[in-house]
Design a protein around this nucleic acid. Structure first.
Lengths: 340, 340
DNA sequence: TTGAAAGCGTTACCAC
DNA sequence: GTGGTAACGCTTTCAA
């Protein structure tokens, strides 16, 4: 495996010149640059990451802390990861996986061993025990999700409040006067208090605004529980029924439950489910979806982190970015019902 | 950030002693070990990964090449990743993500820059353009999936042949005399020729053995296509209908299509879908599943790679490991139909 | 059982 | 515009 020394020898220059050709940190004459580049090419030189990290105190690696929460729709996590990895590469960084079961110690480990220059935490909760550790880490961190206390932190997330409002206005525009919200599964509600509340806040204020009646029922991931929830919802609704179900993990079950009651989603009943664009593409049942723009959220997280690392943002940068969601109408969905 | 030098000073020993305490590569008296460990503790010392990699020519990082194929069920990929990352940590390694859209060049990059000691490739196809590159990489690689030519390669995968056979014997035991196989989606069939064939081979020989009639129909991920396939299947079946659908990406659609025809899976029709244990846990529709044991496959991949890296296996180790699948019966599934 | 010192392959400072 | 060289923090050989 050739080293920069070999390149230098082949090009007839010093090792430092090779380094400067790569970094561009000082002017190099066109002539020598060509020679060096030719030598690198010929030797298929690749700089040694370890040596580079040691000397420059920069690994060009980002630690990505991935959650492992069963209730979470895995496919959406995967989408986050894919976009984060791709964006990182665009910005000349790599991604080191940190599984959440290592807990806060895992964060300290990868930072302490200087395996990475900064961290992205996925699925940050309102009260998250990793936050205090994050603050003391001494490296830039970007959170996906908004904790209760955000001072000194960089956070990005979907704008759930706006998402809630969008669902209501969309259905209101379709003529619905009363709407049933199927809440997230209880286990999720207990865990991620935060965005659930934000969503409901958006629903509440939009409903007030549009003079729409809201019936909120508990989300369930078992047939019996969902059946009860749907019945409760149907009983409370006036006019053509409309459902909003932001939890991707129980959407299929909701749709199935509605179908069993003879209600065809998109014809007899309006349904807005919350799922990502990628999932929506392959959605089997026609329904409108709240696209929370996970790709944009992921991309922003990486961009912010890399900007801080590049010194384009102050080291102690602090922000809360909320990405606007979009309602995607699928064909044959929201067949505007004839409501008096 | 303290270095091993600081630890050495604090413990009143030389730097090499600190190193040997960590690696255990030479005997250290109980007394000095204690002193060193105490010093490490007090200073919260963590060895610098870059320096360690530079000196030892070992990064203790494994490159994981993840696919990005829309047809693939993302959730199952996520399961692989989670298990791989967890297993790697158990064996004292970390995982660097390599997205497949970097292609073969990506492999050369991470190996060339010595960002990792070895690679795991997910979703390896029968004819895979990354294979030639893999052979020339000079680091150990483990493939998840079985390419056509396996000489000199380490491969792990689910035993699809056995899976196919299992589905047939299971349904035959339930009394079915003719069974419809809903094939993988066309896009998948075209791509991953390999395991699809292996599955069908298992089906074929088991059917022969059990004197069961097989009707194979194309898999489709659109309603119309699936409807046609199901009708074709039903037309060809004698007695109580039974379906086998190994493609997790179209199972929901199949079930839905059956339901529309008035057939309740688990009551009027037997269905075996192929999906992972984790997905089965949360399966909304009761059906039996072929558990291809992705967790075991993932774990083995890491174990093999780490064994090679640790020198426990020859550097040029070569193997093909097939993990046995399991049929998981869900409650109320395979209600043994009354077949004459 | 332990220590000293020579690398490992970069980067970046100091000269020229 | 370019070269020499001292770090960077660890591992490992050679000596003791």
């Amino acid at each position: 495996m050739p080293t920069s020394k070999d390149v230098a020898a082949a090009a007839g220059v010093s090792q430092s010149t090779v380094s400067y050709v790569m970094s561009g940190k000082r002017p190099i004459s066109e002539k020598t640059r060509k020679r060096v580049e030719a030598a690198m090419e010929k030797l298929t030189y690749q700089p040694n990451a370890g040596a580079r990290a040691l000397a420059s105190r920069r690994t060009r690696v980002i630690g990505l802390v991935i959650p492992f929460i069963p209730e979470l729709h895995m496919s959406s996590i995967m989408e986050f990861i894919a976009v984060i990895a791709a964006t990182a590469r665009q910005l000349d960084h790599d991604i080191l996986l940190v599984t959440d079961d290592e807990g806060a110690a895992g964060l300290q480990r990868v930072v302490g061993q200087q395996l990475c220059d900064g961290l992205i935490l996925m699925q940050v909760e309102g009260v998250d025990n990793r936050i205090p550790v994050v603050r003391s880490l001494g490296v830039p961190v970007v959170l996906i999700g908004i904790p209760q206390q955000t001072t000194g932190l960089n956070c990005v997330d979907a704008d759930f409040e706006q998402a809630g409002a969008l669902c209501i206005t969309d259905l209101a525009d379709a003529g619905h006067r009363s709407i049933c919200i199927v809440n997230w599964q209880t286990s999720v509600v207990e865990r991620h208090v935060n965005y659930v509340q934000r969503f409901h806040e958006g629903v509440r204020s939009a409903a007030l605004d549009r003079k729409v009646q809201i019936v909120t029922v508990a989300g369930n991931n078992d047939r019996a529980g969902m059946a009860a929830a749907v019945d409760e919802g149907l009983a409370g609704l006036a006019g053509a029924p409309a459902f909003v179900c932001p939890d991707a993990g129980i959407q299929e079950l909701l749709l199935d439950t509605l179908r069993i009651r003879g209600l065809t989603p998109g014809t007899d009943v309006s349904v807005i489910g919350g799922c990502s664009a990628a999932v929506a593409e392959r959605q089997i049942i026609p329904l409108s979806t709240i696209d929370l723009q996970p790709a944009t959220v992921s991309r922003r997280a990486v961009q912010i982190l890399c900007a801080i690392l590049a010194g384009q943002l102050q080291q102690d940068h602090e922000c809360v970015e909320l990405i606007s969601p979009v309602i995607v109408h699928r064909d044959s969905t929201i067949k505007r019902p004839d409501v008096p």
